[in-house]
Amino acid sequence: MQPQHARNDAARLRATNVRTALVLLTIALVFFGGVIAARFMGGWTTGISVVGFAVFVFLAFAIGRNLRSPK
């Protein structure tokens, strides 16, 4: 039987992991849906622009997330 603080730590870690995974999964789904939706919405220039914009948002998010000051 684990002590209470160990169980709390494990639960907190689990929640953090799930949160990180959901953010990453959302990014993947946006890219997957985005590349198809962009084609529906317009020509290939629109598609490429949408994907390009998504890349920059993704990079800004990915880098920004890791630049947060430590808790």
């Binding site: 990014i27 993947a28 890219f31 997957f32 590349v35 198809i36």
Partner: peptide, 13 residues
């Protein structure tokens, strides 16, 4: 994570 969904989208189309 950035590019595999794009390939998946392309082959889905």
């Amino acid at each position: 994570i950035a590019v595999m969904p794009v390939l998946a989208g392309a082959v889905t189309m």
